[in-house]
């Protein structure tokens, strides 16, 4: 579970990565891992510490699909939408799930339990369709399997 923003703990995390060459991405990953998303406070602190403008940090944060500026749901389900999964019917399965949940891609259920996001390839292309629930990989997921997977957390 992620924790509330805490400037001194964030500063501690950042200082761990400062000796690295090009520390920006590792810092952002670590802060997101700890706090769940990259808040304005986080962006400000990173900018200050790395001595770059906030715009520059914001530019990096907004470029990468992984970085969030809003807290996600308690669980995140990433469903692969790439070609190999499509060839096994992933799009129809995903649409069905989204309809059941009343969500669009990227949305979170109103109770904050589940965010559904697209992912473009998990490298499980010979056992498509695939998805990742939090850190757990799933392959050969038919429509029923996908519904059941989401059902585990909602």
């Amino acid at each position: 579970m992620t924790t509330q923003w805490d400037t001194s703990r964030a500063a501690g995390i950042i200082s761990k990565y400062l000796p690295l060459e090009g520390p920006m991405l590792p810092i952002l990953h670590a802060l997101q891992e700890e706090f769940g998303f990259l808040s304005d406070e986080a962006i400000r602190l990173v900018a200050q510490t790395l001595n770059v403008s906030r715009a520059e940090v914001y530019g990096v944060v907004s470029f990468y699909h992984d970085f969030r500026q809003e807290p996600p749901g308690r669980h995140v389900l990433k469903i692969c939408r790439a070609e190999a999964c499509q060839s096994m019917g992933s799009e129809a399965n995903a649409q069905k799930l989204l309809e059941t949940l009343g969500l669009d891609w990227g949305d979170t259920t109103p109770d904050g339990r589940l965010t559904v996001e697209p992912v473009y390839c998990l490298g499980l292309c010979a056992c498509a369709p695939s998805a990742m629930l939090d850190d757990e990989l799933h392959a050969r997921l038919d429509a029923q399997g996908l519904q059941a997977l989401a059902g585990e957390v909602i």
């Binding site: 991405l25 990953h29 530019g59 990096v60 699909h65």
Partner: peptide, 25 residues
């Protein structure tokens, strides 16, 4: 090991280098 952040274009070598340097890819 450096972890990417979900940008397909970072598989292009020069975008990858920018990303490693801590910039937009």
């Amino acid at each position: 090991v450096r972890e990417g952040a979900g940008a397909y274009v970072c598989g292009e070598e020069t975008a990858l280098l920018d990303s490693l340097e801590g910039k937009r890819g």
